[in-house]
Simulated assay, not measured.
Amino acid sequence: MNKKFSFLLVPFLVLAVKLGAATVDTVSVYSDSMNKNIKDVVIKPSGYKPSQKYPVLYLLHGYSGNYSDWIKKDPGLPGLADEYGMLIVCPDGGFASWYFDSPIAKSSRYETYISRELVTYIDKHYSTVNNRAGRAITGLSMGGHGALYLAFRHQDVFGAAGSMSGGVDLRPFPDSFGLKEVLGEYNQYPERWEEGSIVNMLYMIKSNSLALTFDCGADDFFCLYNNQLHEKLLERKIPHEYTSRPGGHSWEYWCNSIKYQAMFFSTFFNSTSKVKAG
């Protein structure tokens, strides 16, 4: 079989579970770039119809997590798919990939996987708005970094992006969170850490090229760096929403945060659909 974009969707690999009114699928997607199958969760809203096109929110997990984190930790997530009429896709991003195509770990190419291979799979197997106006991406912690990193670098794929408690500046953590396993030692490859930090990537976006929202708990160890990102965006006059609410680096915070972000992305989807219709 030609493995290029040969995706596996067979009965024993796809588990459909009813949670509330939404349907939760676990799918296995073949990654040509990493030569392996990767599991992902797909939440379909109540009343999903193949004849209708749905926007998609890609929701990334954090360091040491996996594809099932969000659906296990946040029982309200299917309800957001129902409320806003969107698909929610929770990819597996590896234990500590930081969603890079790693220059040293060739088996870790999660930028390519999510921005190209997974998006292609979702658009092929589900009824989606298959352009940037119908795609948003966000995530928590490592996934917050990943969402902004992927959106900044693939603005042709994603029209909106967010981050919750995101690791937006990698440089203060040279020995933490598995970063040196995907980027190399900071003192040997400082340019990789500089170029991979969101706070240094703002030159890639223009005033209204992406709809942006991010937040961080006031007691979170990443809060200082998110505040700095907010200030840099203000300096560059790049529109965005930023909130620092009470809370720390915890699922209690993220389960609350995703409610606000889902509303933000729904507003984006509705605005782009009206512009397209007009």
Rank of each mutant, 00 (worst) to 15 (best):
S6V: 08
F7N: 13
F7I: 02
L9R: 15
L13R: 15
L13Y: 15
V14K: 14
L19A: 09
D25K: 10
V27K: 02
S28Y: 09
V29K: 06
V29A: 05
N35A: 14
K36M: 08
N37P: 02
I43S: 08
K44E: 01
G47E: 06
Y48I: 02
Q52D: 13
P55S: 06
V56P: 03
Y58G: 06
L60V: 03
N66F: 08
I71M: 08
K72P: 00
L77K: 09
L77E: 04
E83G: 05
I88T: 04
Y99R: 05
S102E: 03
I104M: 04
A105C: 03
S107A: 14
Y113F: 15
I114Q: 09
E117D: 06
I122S: 12
Y126N: 09
T128M: 00
V129N: 01
V129F: 01
R132L: 05
R135Y: 00
G144S: 13
Y149A: 06
D156S: 11
F158A: 09
A161Y: 13
V168G: 06
R171N: 00
F173R: 14
S176K: 15
L179P: 07
E185F: 10
W193M: 03
Y203Q: 12
K206V: 03
N208Q: 14
A211M: 06
D215K: 13
A218I: 15
F222W: 12
C223H: 11
E231I: 00
E231S: 13
K232V: 00
K232H: 12
R236S: 09
R236K: 15
I238W: 11
I238Y: 12
P239A: 14
S244M: 13
S244F: 03
G247P: 13
E252Y: 10
F264D: 09
F265D: 00
N270Y: 01
S271G: 00
A277Q: 13
G278I: 02
G278A: 05
